[in-house]
Design a protein around this nucleic acid. Structure first.
Lengths: 150, 150
DNA sequence: TGACTCATGTCAGCATTCTGACATAGCTTG
DNA sequence: CAAGCTATGTCAGAATGCTGACATGAGTCA
C-alpha cells in the first residue's frame, strides 16, 4: 500500500510534510494574531510596509502571497481604519505607494512580538546548521517550483 | 532596517520562507489539478481514502488540514457526484466510514500522476541527503509548533 | 448507574480569497 | 509615431474555508 507506484505515500512525501508544516505555522500564527484583531495576510502587509515603505498594492500582494485583488480589498479596509495611507492620485503611472501611519506602526509592534515568539518556538529544537540547511533547502524548492511553469 | 529588533526580517525569516515554499507548491498543484476539475483539498481527500479506506469525516479533515465542517461539505459533494460512498447509518457511534468508488479511484489516478510530477520538480535540485534533512527539519518544526499551544 | 467530558456529524452564517473582466499607464519595437 | 505587450488598480461575483452552535454517541469515573 505504501510505495507501489499507485499513489503518493503521505507519510514520507515532502510535499505533504511541507503542507503540514505550513498549516501548523498558519494555525499558530492565527492563534496569537487573533487577539490583536489580525490575520496572517493583514500582518504580512503591515510588516512588508514597515520594511519597505512605499510598496504598491501589487508589490504587497506578491509579498504576502495573495492576488492583487485580495490585497486591494485589505488595503481599502486598512486605509479606512487609519492604519495606512495612499495618495489620492498616482504620482507616476497607476501605482499608489502605500505607507504605514503611526497607528499602523503601533499595531504592528504588538503583532511582531507575537509572531516572533511563534517563530522562536518553531525553531526551538533546531541547531544553527539545521537552520541554515532549512533555508537553503526551502529556497531550492521555491526555485524549482517556479521554474518553467509548464 | 534588517535585524535591529524592531521587526522580522522577511528576507531571512524561516517562517516567511516556509510560507513562500508552501505557496509555490500550492500554486503549482492547483495549476495541474485545475484541468482535472480538482483543487488541493479535493485531491488530498481522495488520496487519503485510497491509502486508508474507511476514514471518517473528521479523520479526513485532519489529514487534509481543514476543519471537519469544510470536509463535510466536500464529502457531500463527492458523494453526490459518485466519487465516494458512505453508509446511510453509522455502523458504530456517529462515525461514517468513507470509501472510494471505482469512479473516485479512476479520478484519483490521473491526479496522482499530475501531483507526482510537481513533487518531482520540487525536489529536482536536491540530493538524497538534502531530502532526508528536509524531512527531519520539517518534522521538527511541526512538533515544536504543536507543542504547548499556549 | 448517572454525571461529566470529549469526539463526531451537521447546519447556518460569515470571512477570506479567488477568477473574470475592464480601463488605463508605461515600455518596447518596428 | 503607432501598435502591441505587460503591469496596475479596481469592481463584481463565485468558490472556498472558517467560527459558532447544536444534538448525539462513546468513554470515564465517582
Amino acid at each position: 500500500m505504501s510505495q507501489d507506484g499507485a499513489g503518493i505515500d503521505l507519510d514520507t512525501s515532502l510535499g505533504y510534510l511541507l503542507k503540514e508544516a505550513s498549516s501548523a505555522l498558519r494555525v499558530a500564527m492565527e492563534e496569537v494574531l487573533r487577539p490583536l484583531g489580525m490575520n496572517v495576510t493583514h500582518y504580512s502587509c503591515l510588516e512588508l510596509l514597515a520594511q519597505r515603505p512605499g510598496l504598491s498594492n501589487s508589490d504587497l500582494a506578491r509579498g504576502a502571497f495573495v492576488t492583487r485583488q485580495t490585497m486591494n480589498v485589505l488595503l481599502q479596509a486598512l486605509e479606512r481604519d487609519g492604519y495606512v495611507t495612499r495618495p489620492a492620485a498616482a504620482p507616476v503611472g497607476k501605482v499608489l505607494p502605500t505607507r504605514l501611519t503611526p497607528r499602523g506602526r503601533r499595531s504592528l509592534e504588538k503583532a511582531t512580538v507575537a509572531v516572533r515568539s511563534v517563530e522562536v518556538r518553531m525553531l526551538a529544537d533546531m541547531t544553527d546548521a539545521e537552520r541554515s540547511a532549512a533555508s537553503r533547502i526551502l529556497r531550492s524548492m521555491i526555485r524549482s517550483l517556479r521554474a518553467d511553469d509548464a
